[in-house]
Design a protein around this nucleic acid. Sequence first.
DNA 1: GTGAAAGCGCTAACAG
DNA 2: CTGTTAGCGCTTTCAC
Lengths: 343, 343
Amino acid sequence: MSDGTLATHAGRPTLEEVARVAGVSRATVSRVINGSPRVSADVLAVVEKAIAELNYVPNRAARSLVARATMSIALVVPEDAHRFFGDPYFADVVQGISDRLDDSDYVLNLQLTHPSSPSEKTRRYLLGGNVDGAIVVSHHSGDHFLTTLSRALPVVFGGRPIGEAAKDSDYYIDVDNRLGAVAGTQHLIDRGRRAIATITGPPDMPASVDREQGWREALRAAGLPDHRVAHGDFTEAGGIRAALTLVDTYPDVDAIFVASDLMASGALLALEERGLRVPEDVAVVGFDNSKYATRGKVGLTTVAQPAQEMGVVMADTLLRLLAGEAPPRVTTLDTHLVIRDST
Amino acid sequence: MSDGTLATHAGRPTLEEVARVAGVSRATVSRVINGSPRVSADVLAVVEKAIAELNYVPNRAARSLVARATMSIALVVPEDAHRFFGDPYFADVVQGISDRLDDSDYVLNLQLTHPSSPSEKTRRYLLGGNVDGAIVVSHHSGDHFLTTLSRALPVVFGGRPIGEAAKDSDYYIDVDNRLGAVAGTQHLIDRGRRAIATITGPPDMPASVDREQGWREALRAAGLPDHRVAHGDFTEAGGIRAALTLVDTYPDVDAIFVASDLMASGALLALEERGLRVPEDVAVVGFDNSKYATRGKVGLTTVAQPAQEMGVVMADTLLRLLAGEAPPRVTTLDTHLVIRDST
DNA sequence: GTGAAAGCGCTAACAG
DNA sequence: CTGTTAGCGCTTTCAC
């Protein structure tokens, strides 16, 4: 304990100790750790042995300090926790992000923020250089702070960001919502339906707008009317309300293209409530291909989007940005129709 | 650019620059930042002004390095993302944790891991001193690595941990599952039910075991039989299967105490499928008081547990542990019965 | 190929 | 109350 030169301590081993054990300099150990080619084979072996013996793990803080990088990225969720966790779409996206990051040295910092105004702490955190980049996952994006965030650090959005502040230098991953909606609606048309309604998402989300537009396009191309519209909010309860409104307002409706499975799930409940059979009386197409599509008694035909892959690509895009590469600014993944019992 | 003494740089301001602008030493600035009382009012003002002007934010890495603390805590989710995000209970817990942490200097690192075996990266991360503490949220806890984790750093569990490795030095937040189950079952008895079954959770989770035990106790105390048991897995589909088994095996069943709302939601579906009315033919009591309790056509009577508050307390307990305090090792929150239409 | 030395931005004794 | 002096653990020129 009073040894003046060789203190035996309990804490985690440092690079210096590894160097001592291996009988080399710290610089060499550092080279080994960082996979530098300028190390001879035998020295490499000795150092690696010492690392293994001591169970050495580099100190992140020290590394960050000199590298001027935090090696962590923020997962910003500008959404009520219930809306977020309640939607299987997000579960997949997060899983994808997490999966991709597992292969990197970055870690994920969860930032749950109020949709319309991130807390002061979150703002400072994000702007204060505490993360190297951020991934913003939400359908929403009218928020000023968030659209402005990309001026301060690399940001990748899940879904096309909107708002006056959205710059065309923003990176985002999206699916072709319009085309997916066209496919879903066209399927309804092909099934012989003629009075096709839609339940949209909130008007301030690009995904909502694009899906509604796709629905409209398909209808117009077929010479069918496109006035049967009800607005939802991407929740099951909202789907119930919208479907009720729809069947009450347009008793002749024989099909509904719903902008999300969760809302479609609600619509199915509402139709049953009104004594309408699916698909006999009313055919229903959802969007997402989430677990809600197979949860009810009637399997939901739906426009599948590769949510998990979107998460992977979001993370990958950010990683490439951080690596100084030039990933595509916009990545659009494909949707495909999954046909079940509801049509 | 070739100015040898006063370089004007673009990067974030450092403490040193603040000191220069304020005309004081770095130590003084550091004192101001850390709220030391040993600073005169006027100096304080000058420094704060400089900080504001420069928009200075302390460098986390540098701070961590000297403080030997990362100021970040891990949120370990040893669960499939779908199971996790699909259960509103977790949404509330995470929201609570996030809320509590918002009032602290700690940030949350999300660690999605495979239930049975965390990735090598996660292990190294958790054990490598990259976080100051961890919160493990899951019903599961038989996993060896996780129960062993508390030997390496402060850990707080959501729900009582089990397994041979669980030490009685583990910190955890829980509700009194047994008592809650007793209350739910007693309510059924009070309603005049006599053939009361139960749908349990997985047998490897303490919450499942305790709730089943509570159900059994209430029944025995009332001199009622306790053999009508079916096992579920805390998913809706599992609830459907279990309920079907139950009514087919025991046609006389007139009530079911279900260990979670999600499963109860499935049970409701199954009962309807079998043409049984709720509550006339079969009364149902759930557990959680999550959104699933009010989602279906019949409101679910359920044992409410304060999920969000549990999250708050989990975070709070860990924070106190990190602060060197001695928070209660076990915190048990109360449940209460919420009566709706299903009983 | 390897080591010596300097420094990332901050905090913490220790003087004064 | 305030400044000076050392590092925290790591990477990185720059010599050899």
